Simulated scan of single mutants.
Amino acid sequence: MSTGAAGDAAGTPTGRPARLRLPGGAAGPEGVAFPPFIDHHVHLQMVDPDAAPQAGIAGVVDLGAELTAIAALAAREPLPRVVFAGQFLTAPGGYPSDRWWLRPGSLRELPAATRADDRRALPDPIETAVAEQAAFGARLVKIMLNADAGPVFDRATVDAIVVAARARGLLVATHAEGEGTARLAIEAGADVLVHAPFTERLDDELVALAAASGQCWITTFDIHARAGEASALGTAIDNTARFLAAGGRVLYGTDLGNGELPDGVNPGELAAMLAAGLAPGELIGALSDPWPLGDPVEWGGDALATFVPGPQPQDAEELPAWLAGARVVPIENLEFG
């Protein structure tokens, strides 16, 4: 079964007019149905996990949690559908080991990689850590590289984590903050930067490399705007605009759980994404992109849709406020014209 979402010439989902049927069969509002909207950066242990679907988000990618807790949330039947990375993997004493918000068991400190000929009989700690994330059902591992808040892994250790993840069929997500960390993540082949780079302006060659390698960037602009971090926001938007121009793939994500953010579709995030150069169709594409899964059906897209009441505005500046009215509904409750 299809959500009925149409697409433009490039395949970007543009939605399809629909009417919502209310309980009892009464006719509800007219609006537009889209494939399930995904927030690609959340922390469910820090928020109400049931709130997002009521505000338009059908699925979330959790990027840092205690393994037992997040595996239990992912196994629940109610929405949202949860894909997760498991623990924060960091260098000894590295970020976020000193943060008050860190949940017990959500951090994994790993030693520097050793050469194969230096290993002894004990299991390799990097391979063991990655294997544990996979055993709990993680689809990704998350590497923490915050040079502004403590030690970070060297290139050899990042490479070892990437190799271990690839061997388990896992993708690699990287928090890159501080000088040189985005370059390290990009050159090491990380699949995604969990924040659009915000601490330094990347040179055009590095941005082009990130785009050409198929790397994704998750926006998380609104955390900077709400914190009054104008410089970080401007840097993130500038880097993202050039990444888009180079053909890069941008994903909607909010870092939900980081400060006071709305539970569902965040109009502030969407407005900043428009400022970074996303066209309206690209904005919808970033919201409904099934990454890290392969198809919207894997997010429930054969049975669910994100429905936005009212006609889609023609003015792009009105799009964020309109999309903020989204809700997740069963497809069977929609009538398509």
Results as ranks from 00 to 15, higher is better:
L122N: 14
R108P: 03
D117W: 08
A167E: 14
L209C: 08
L170I: 03
D117P: 00
A210W: 09
R183T: 09
E205A: 15
R183G: 13
G137N: 02
V163A: 14
D124V: 10
A112K: 10
G189Q: 03
P123H: 08
G93M: 02
L193K: 05
L102I: 03
A129K: 11
P111Q: 05
A182P: 03
N146G: 00
A211S: 07
G105T: 08
L170P: 03
T114Q: 14
A138S: 15
A135D: 10
D98R: 14
M144L: 05
A182G: 05
A164I: 04
A164L: 07
G169D: 10
T199Q: 11
D98E: 12
L145A: 00
A190L: 06
W100D: 14
A121T: 10
P104E: 09
T157E: 07
Y95R: 05
R166E: 09
I161P: 01
V163S: 13
G189C: 03
V158T: 03
P96D: 13
V192P: 04
D191E: 11
D148S: 07
R115Y: 02
P111E: 08
G150T: 00
G169Q: 04
A210P: 15
A149V: 01
T128I: 00
G150M: 01
R99W: 02
E177C: 13
R115P: 01
V130T: 12
D98A: 14
E127M: 07
A138G: 06
A188Q: 14
R155L: 02
R108H: 12
P96F: 13
V194M: 14
S97W: 10
R155D: 06
G150L: 02
A134T: 14
L171M: 06
R183S: 09
V130P: 09
G150C: 01
T114C: 11
L193P: 05
G137E: 01
E179A: 13
F198H: 13
R183D: 12
G93A: 01
L184G: 06
T199W: 07
A165M: 04
G169C: 05
V130G: 07
I186N: 00
R108S: 12
T199E: 11
D154Y: 04
L140P: 03
A210E: 12
P104I: 10
V141D: 03
T199M: 06
K142Y: 05
L110K: 02
L102H: 03
T128L: 12
D191C: 11
A135G: 12
V158F: 02
P123M: 09
T174C: 14
I143M: 15
A190M: 11
D203W: 00
R119F: 13
Y95L: 09
L171Q: 02
F198N: 07
T174R: 00
D118P: 00
D159S: 08
D124F: 13
A156K: 14
Y95A: 12
E109T: 08
R103M: 11
F136Q: 01
V163T: 15
P123L: 07
R108M: 10
R115C: 01
S97C: 15
E132M: 15
V141E: 07
T128D: 04
E132G: 08
A185W: 06
T199R: 13
E127L: 08
A211N: 05
A135R: 15
G150R: 01
A149R: 12
R103E: 12
D191R: 12
D117E: 09
I126F: 06
D159H: 11
D191P: 10
P96R: 12
A165Q: 03
H175M: 10
T181Y: 11
A182F: 09
